[in-house]
Simulated assay, not measured.
Amino acid sequence: MNIRRLLILFILGSAGAQTTYTVQAGDTLSSVARRYQTTPVALLTLNALPSTTIQVGQTLQLPPPPQHTVQAGETLYSIARQAGTTPEALIALNGLQNSTLQVGQTLRLTGGPRPSDATSTTPPVVTTTPPTLTRPPPTPPVAGRLERGLFTPQRLPAFTDVLLRTASLGGPRPASAYLPKVGFGYQTLNNCGPAAVAAAMNAYGVPADQRTWQERLRPTGGNMSTEAAGALLTELGFDAPALRGGTIEAVKRHVADGHPVIVLQYHSVLGKPPHFRVVRGYDDTQGILIMSDSLSGPNVALTERDFDLLWNTQGRQYLPVEPPQG
């Protein structure tokens, strides 16, 4: 779905359903957008904001959730592909029994009031109270402290080849993506690096575990470096440059393209210990990144803020692992 169409849906999708929100201490434009299942770009456009900076007490207009009216020849699959989501997500969001659609049927494309609620004759109630989320809204963050730390996500994003093809062809990044073939194994002492390399290789069907390349990656028994991991993966035919100064958006884009990303962070406490893990998924609605972590489990998550804090102190080092070309 292109930006113009998305903006039209935001403006016309649900007459009279627009609400406002009063900015509270600790809010950011991203956190408000996440809370109301919209995007920072939509809030910037709707409120004509000069930047992403918002002030306590400021009133923000909230766009209604985008909707889509089913046209002749459309399928749930084609609608999901255009909206950058999955058929499974649309089924859950709209309470559908199956993938069968009717011409003229209205579908929600993101969270918010159901179409039947939006077309109700009862006047909408304008409120500043955040809607019920799948997880409680975080308390205002304290500088330098983790918001939540490592946790098991309440749900994993759906996986379909549609997401990977859409992203790799330069289309809009899907709101969630998950790589089911990334490997996992609990590490031995100080062996998170080789375990992460093996987990990323497993995503492409390479049968490796942490012992396979341990001596090559940790020849003196010390810590593995991102450069050593990149050199080995390149030698094996993968495209895996050791990079610094990464961003969460860059990591999401690689995952959406089907590529696991090895990151070097602190494990769960700032300052100790350095730790390699593999990002295998993300979910914009929950505001999380999902990882295969050799210390904590095959599917553990961090909020985007915690991920950035634990990553920032390591120089944001990462290795997107892409398969050999040709």
Rank of each mutant, 00 (worst) to 15 (best):
N2M: 14
R4D: 15
R5M: 08
I8K: 06
I8S: 05
F10D: 02
Y21Q: 13
T22S: 09
T22F: 02
T28P: 13
A33E: 03
R35A: 12
Q37D: 07
P40L: 11
L49N: 15
T53F: 12
G57E: 07
Q58A: 05
T59N: 03
H68M: 13
V70W: 11
G73R: 08
E74K: 13
L76A: 07
L76K: 02
I79H: 02
G84I: 00
T86I: 12
T86W: 00
A89D: 11
I91H: 04
G95C: 14
G104K: 07
S116M: 14
T122I: 04
T122C: 15
V125H: 10
V125R: 03
V126L: 14
P140L: 15
P141V: 02
P141Q: 07
R148W: 04
L156F: 14
F159K: 02
L169E: 11
G171H: 03
P172C: 00
A177Y: 01
Q187L: 10
G193E: 06
A196S: 06
V197Y: 00
A200N: 08
M201Y: 02
N202F: 01
Y204V: 04
G205R: 02
A208L: 05
A208S: 15
T212V: 06
W213T: 01
Q214Y: 14
E215R: 14
L217N: 01
T220F: 07
S225P: 06
S225Y: 04
A229S: 12
L236R: 10
G237T: 04
P241L: 10
L243T: 01
R244Q: 15
I248E: 11
V251R: 00
K252E: 13
R253T: 04
A256D: 12
P260F: 08
P260T: 14
Y266C: 09
Y266A: 08
G271F: 12
K272L: 11
K272N: 15
Q286G: 12
I290K: 00
P298K: 08
N299P: 02
L302M: 08
R305E: 09
D306T: 11
F307D: 00
N312Y: 11
N312P: 00
T313A: 02
R316P: 08
Q317V: 07
P320S: 09
Q325R: 13
